[in-house]
Design a protein around this nucleic acid. Structure first.
Length: 306
DNA sequence: GGAAGTCAAGTCTCG
DNA sequence: CGAGACTTGACTTCC
């Protein structure tokens, strides 16, 4: 079981998602920004490795305007060496990376233009993971999209569009339950049709479910992952008190995390990888890591930890 | 130099 | 139908 956090390390001063306004776009600006972002990604992964954090979500902002028509630069070729270098580090340290395109990627949209832009964005995410030389265990995680007043039809469109994607995108694609529209059950139904693995988001599941217990949910989602997909991914978060339902906690609630761990059937070497969606990022990741280490020492998880 | 305004992209809800 | 939430930073302009 590896632990991770998304996109930004708050202990470092660099950001791998620095960008600029579309109106400021120039080849110059683009190159210097990408170069700095890759450098920061490299530093972040080095920090992670040294800290024992072996799972990381790479920001979608790594290559600004990657899928935008304004950008006709062959960034894939231009930065091939840098990507390969970072990729080697990931492999050598047995780390796992993933990506999570944001809300603008809606595969089941009714508007074809949106579907085209979404597809281009998915290709960009796949490019990054391909250039790093990662295998199909490095995932690109999306939600099912909108409902448009007819969930069955919308799920149907998602399935069609997903199946039409290029293989190199499809082999990385995974679907995640959301807090309002599509529950774990809905995702499992899409899995039945498409074979896409399901990422369980624990906070979304608590908000939007069909009465499955957390233990049951973990098992059901876990079964959708094949060997070539790597260990199942689970997004863990706690509700921030006094805020809208679904708001991520500012810092990790270790009691809650420990309860969650007790519901994971097989933590240890072969267990799921856990992405901690907590606002203070690396700080909570370290706290969680220390807890897992302590538990494994006292034998309170079911398996030995490396 | 600091403050205020703005940013590629989508969907849903509310007024 | 249009604005705001979602969620947040930081880029950019303005003074």
């Amino acid at each position: 079981m590896r632990l991770g956090y998304p996109c930004i390390n708050l202990s470092l001063s660099c950001r791998s998602s620095t960008t600029f306004r579309l109106s400021s776009f120039s080849a110059e600006r683009f190159r210097s920004t990408v170069s700095a972002n890759l450098q920061c990604l490299s530093e972040t992964l080095a920090w992670n490795s040294a800290s024992g954090v072996l799972f990381f979500r790479i920001t979608s902002g790594l290559i600004p305007f990657a899928s935008h028509p304004v950008n006709s630069l062959g960034w894939q070729d231009e930065f091939r060496k840098e990507f390969r270098h970072i990729g080697s580090f990931i492999r050598e340290n047995r780390m796992r990376v993933s990506m999570h395109p944001d809300q603008f990627v809606v595969l089941n949209a009714k508007n074809e233009g949106i579907v085209e832009r979404s597809t281009a964005e998915l290709l960009y995410h796949s490019d990054v993971l391909d250039l790093l030389g990662t295998g199909s265990e490095a995932k690109v995680q999306i939600h099912l999209g909108g409902v448009y007043g007819d969930k069955a039809a919308s799920i149907g469109r998602f399935t069609e569009r997903a199946e039409a994607l290029p293989r190199r995108v499809l082999k990385r694609l995974v679907i995640e339950n959301d807090e309002r529209l599509y529950s774990l059950m809905d995702c499992l139904a899409v899995h039945e049709k498409t074979g896409l693995p399901v990422v369980l988001d624990t906070l979304h599941h608590a908000c939007n479910n069909n009465r499955e217990s957390m233990r049951e949910a973990i098992l059901l989602a876990g079964k959708t992952w094949r060997r070539q997909d790597g260990p199942p991914i689970i997004d863990f978060s706690t509700q921030e008190k006094g805020r809208r339902l679904g708001t991520h906690a500012q810092t990790i609630d270790l009691r809650h995390f420990r309860t969650f761990l007790s519901q994971v059937p097989d933590p240890g070497d072969r267990g799921p990888d856990i992405m901690l969606e907590i606002k203070d990022k690396d700080r909570s990741a370290l706290k969680a890591l220390r807890l897992v280490m302590a538990l494994s020492k006292t034998g309170k998880t079911s398996r030995r930890h490396p």
